[in-house]
Design a protein around this nucleic acid. Structure first.
Lengths: 132, 132
DNA sequence: GTCCGCTATAGGACGTTATCCTATAGTCGG
DNA sequence: CCGACTATAGGATAACGTCCTATAGCGGAC
């Protein structure tokens, strides 16, 4: 997704499904990177393994540069300071655009799935006539 | 998706949804790049615009290197020669694995969509009490 | 008290992927 | 002959993902 002019929420690319997940998570209130990683790990889409933190932090920074989130340092009682991220109105608007994009993906993948299944059936007339 | 050891059909990444589309298209019979591009342009997932041909040709080459397809030159009566691609058994197996992966994506996106919608509702108590 | 592990953020390096621009070459119609 | 369409492909660059490493606070084990 070269051209960074348009947000991924326009559906320009399928990568970065992390972004809507991230925005949706931040919509529940301000949060910091490490915690967000834990939250994202629970999503079925990333199933289990916690996302690479380096990538996540970089994504957050780039989203801040694009005005979708803002951050400020906050103290912690149990460890090092945290960079607390908060959704901006632009981020909320972006999240709303994601709804349509995700609907498109959902339909598109359903279509692709149907075509893939059909292709598989066509490819394996393995067990034919008396197939039980 | 560094590690090229595992095929995208394992669900390692969301990029390259072109690949199942491509495999499903080739499952209907041998075809060449330019024509595949036309076919892909009809899919709802890429909606309208024909995919970048450079990327498509490179994807085909990499898939050949991975043994999913094989190619041979074929003459054309209406233009320059074409590189005809054909699915291999490995490619067919890959296509079958894609079914489960696409199912996972389908469910994952549905989940993400639900969470995104819920987040949007939470974010806009805009019109509240008497909202008509 | 020191080492180890957990929390928390981040840079460097590298490989992969996507896309823009350009090059090539055959065919056909005006 | 030149432009449009067909057909494939390299170069360059941007974007993205991930591995490795660095820093630093905190708490428990030994």
């Amino acid at each position: 997704m070269p051209k960074s002019a348009d947000c991924p929420c326009t559906g320009a690319t399928l990568t970065k499904l992390v972004q809507p997940a991230l925005l949706a998570t931040l919509a529940r209130g301000p949060m910091y990177g490490y915690r967000i990683a834990e939250e994202l790990a629970r999503l079925p889409i990333v199933k289990g393994e916690r996302p690479d933190t380096t990538g996540l932090y970089r994504t957050l920074r780039s989203m801040e540069k694009r005005g979708l989130v803002v951050s400020k340092w906050a103290q912690s009682k149990v460890g090092p300071d945290r960079r607390l991220y908060r959704l901006t109105p632009a981020g909320a608007a972006c999240l709303e655009r994601w709804v349509q994009t995700l609907l498109d993906y959902h339909r598109g993948i359903a279509d692709l799935l149907a075509k893939t299944k059909a292709a598989c059936v066509r490819l394996r007339p393995s067990r034919r006539k008396g197939d039980k």
